[in-house]
């Protein structure tokens, strides 16, 4: 889904600049990676100088940060959080576990491929990635936003049935509305 650079008007460029310079993150910290978020945001690495700050609720957030392994039980909560966020929204998969299951690849209780369930814009690999790697991942996300290629939310809207099918494969007892506004 590559967007032609020339098709961006001046308004788009300004909008994408504002979007990339102001990222409110919703850190979903059930995995071990949650411990890397506080040093990233506080004095040592100071992500706020790059416009990254924490958001308190999914409504206000732009970036969903899935930190580490994702249990099948918490996948349901992640989907709810993701669908409550307001578009344009981005997802960063954080750590090996979101990429291929990591050291929990043969666990009965953790999913292996995050991007089969929600669209992921940027993966940061490592077990665990250091705050420098996290900031590098955010820089990559900023590049994608500026060039108009961070379109995971659009992909999710277009292929909702496919994603739902994968999600329902894991969440057997689906007691949610079709879309969690």
């Amino acid at each position: 889904m590559i967007n032609d650079k020339n098709s961006q008007g001046i308004v788009d460029i300004i909008a994408e600049y504002a979007r990339k310079q102001s990222l409110f993150i919703m850190a979903y910290g059930t995995g071990c990676g949650a411990i890397e978020i506080p040093p990233t945001l506080t004095s040592r690495y100071d992500a706020e100088r790059l416009g990254i700050r924490g958001a308190a609720t999914p409504r206000q957030a732009d970036v969903l940060l899935i930190t580490g392994y994702l249990a099948t039980k918490s996948l349901k909560r992640v989907i709810r959080v993701y669908e409550q966020m307001q578009a344009p929204k981005y997802v960063i998969g954080f750590g090996s576990c979101t990429i291929n299951g990591g050291m929990y690849w043969d666990s009965y209780n953790t999913i292996n491929l995050l991007d089969k369930y929600i669209p992921v814009d940027v993966y940061i690999n490592g077990c665990m990635p250091r705050p420098e790697a996290v900031i590098a991942g955010f820089e990559k996300l900023k590049e994608l936003i500026q060039s108009g290629n961070a379109l995971g939310w659009k992909k999710y809207e277009d292929n909702l049935e496919e994603y739902r099918e994968n999600q329902k494969k894991v969440i057997v007892n689906w007691q949610m509305p079709d879309y969690n506004w």
Partner: peptide, 19 residues
Amino acid sequence: DTEKYVNEHFFNRPGREDA
């Protein structure tokens, strides 16, 4: 059998050569 369960229920990244 955990491995069988995982292969049935979850996806594996294609080209994965670890394990």
